[in-house]
Design a protein around this nucleic acid. Structure first.
Lengths: 350, 350
DNA sequence: TTGTACGCGTTATCAA
DNA sequence: TTGATAACGCGTACAA
């Protein structure tokens, strides 16, 4: 019994119907009499046929049901961020009704032969963040004529984008702090470049990552001259490191910190605790994202809530639209300000 | 210019060679003279041909370059766990040289039409954890004759598995605590069932999740009768909740806690801090996994280090072997005990 | 409601 | 080193 797997023709023959009829039984595209259907299904069962070969079906249909998601470097790093996790969930959920799943593709890999947008049977591509290495993928996808959606990044011309009102939202948080009387403020930013290292941010620095630049601009709209410290990415540990620097000198510590993500904010809070400062009594901290941060309890961050899952869904909807041939529009999602228990009025001067 | 995309035949015609020659130029399977190669590439460029259509190629080759990874419920939940993230990285890395990528497939979804192992063009399937809903996927994969690898779960018969010496490893940690003099110990477990809720664990309880059962057995080998409290999953917050229960009554609190994961351990430590206890001065805590936990600093857990990335790699290697037609062996990976700064001798009785 | 005929775009095989 | 041939397994007009 080393024979090849049964095909739909075998099933049709066994059931004494034509291949097209058998096909229709499985696809449901056309009504079939109950009797015939049953004969076909029985034949299939007896031959161990489990349905159309997906590879053949995708060639025929011109669609594979696979959406390529290009993630930068490591999955570990990418999925560390709750925003990305929720986003992927939304994306998966939205394309699922189209029978589509997500294929993880990495840019930064020197593995020979690794799958790419060029070699993988994808119907569309979703690019996240769009920094330098991603642009290459973008190029590729374009050449292949793939529908593309970019999340929080600029793909130039006619590529639909899913964006957030980062600047406006961050400004809201800054205004909140100003209303509370804070003037000694510091900013903790996300990465400023794909390979960015942590450290004080030079005022003239060129920030190549859109999210970081926009959120910074929003904070600067209210606090043009406050110092900003850059991190190597969105994590509690990075926030902790930044916070330690900020709180190192008791005489010059800020009374409020604007962190560009909830994870960073969580780290900053941890640093404050370490330094013997209470939040929000001595220091106010704002985050960004409004995602559940594991281990943050009992704090509830004052933050900007973005609907991360919706962001993914919007991307999925755009993909779906393009697959249907409908020109998708870019989407601008807005964040809402949520006051938690990590901000309070500026403390009396000691 | 609404014409269809160029095919390899078009390119061949333009270059005045046969389709098979053109094909060979792109696949590199056979030597081709430089002159012809150049002619073909030029022709391709002039026609905007970007290489073989992956869908057609996979039909012909009988291989799509896609490995389906069946993740339980939400991506958000699954990737919350650093072990899973690292595992996926290892897996991706190991199958990449075969031109394969990972397709995320979810079991628990009531979305009509969602992609499954039955409908997606996958060459192999990796199942993680293997609880009830996953068994259905397993069945499916079997029917389709797909190569299957199961990570930390029992797929029965002839399915290769990637396993950890959970019991032995956990026993080591328990012995470490015993050597330190601890007798008042409590265990904080992972989920006991796919839909498990948190709470005290009944001694008779049936534990359907292998990892949980094995690690518990290891702890019980040393501490047969200590109480165990179950959580709803591996997270800091769950560990925190469990820890709060354990430390609620100062008179009866344990001097050591065996947590079944590093995330849980981190939560337990947090709970101890909340209760005004110092770690390891008042309470010792052990974890399991040996993964970086964001926000755990400055603690370094006493834990069992599993090479999570290697686990993924082992799974990837097994997949690769099966794709090559080689019967893969199951793999048993071993954890190593690592003493951190979260365990110490039992404190003097007050 | 069912069957016929054809092509989707590629690549393995073998012969030249 | 190149070319001819034959599938790969299916879906879908269109006709019956």
């Amino acid at each position: 019994m080393t024979s090849r797997r049964a095909t739909i023709s075998d099933v049709a023959r066994e059931a004494a119907v034509s291949p097209s009829t058998a096909s229709v039984v499985f696809s449901g595209k056309t009504p079939v009499s109950d009797a015939t259907r049953q004969r076909v299904l029985d034949a299939a069962a007896s031959l161990g046929y489990t349905g159309p070969d997906p590879r053949a079906a995708s060639l025929r249909r011109g669609r594979s049901g696979i959406v390529g998601v290009v993630v930068g470097s490591s999955l570990n790093y990418m999925f560390l961020d709750p925003v990305q996790r929720l986003m992927m969930d939304g994306l998966a959920e939205e394309v699922a009704p189209f029978g589509a799943g997500l294929l993880l593709l990495r840019t930064a890999t020197d593995i020979e032969n690794a799958p790419t947008l060029l070699t993988a049977p994808v119907d569309a591509a979703v690019l996240i963040g769009c920094d330098a290495p991603l642009r290459a993928s973008l190029e590729t996808a374009h050449l292949r004529g793939l529908p593309i959606v970019v999340i929080e990044g600029d793909a130039g011309d006619d590529v639909p984008r899913i964006l957030l009102d980062n600047r406006e939202a961050q400004r809201t948080a800054a205004e909140h702090l100003r209303a509370l009387g804070h003037t000694d403020v510091a900013i903790v930013t996300l990465r400023t470049a794909a390979d960015g290292a942590a450290g004080w941010l030079d005022a003239e620095a060129d920030i190549s990552i859109d999210v970081t630049r926009e959120r910074l601009a929003g904070a600067r709209d209210v606090y043009p001259d406050v110092p900003a410290i850059t991190t190597a990415g969105s994590s509690i540990d990075e926030g902790l490191s930044a916070g330690r620097v900020l709180f190192a000198d008791p005489a010059r510590r800020p009374t409020a910190v604007i962190a560009q993500s909830d994870l960073l904010a969580a780290g900053v809070i941890r640093a404050a605790e370490e330094a013997g400062l209470s939040v929000p009594g001595d220091v106010s901290v704002t985050g960004f994202d409004g995602v559940p941060v594991d281990g943050l309890s009992p704090y509830e961050l004052t933050t900007l809530v973005q609907q991360a899952t919706d962001k993914g869904r919007a991307a999925g909807a755009a993909v779906a639209a393009m697959l249907e041939g409908v020109p998708p529009a870019s989407v601008l999602l807005t964040c809402t300000f949520r006051e938690g228990n990590t901000t309070a009025a500026v403390p009396e001067r000691r």
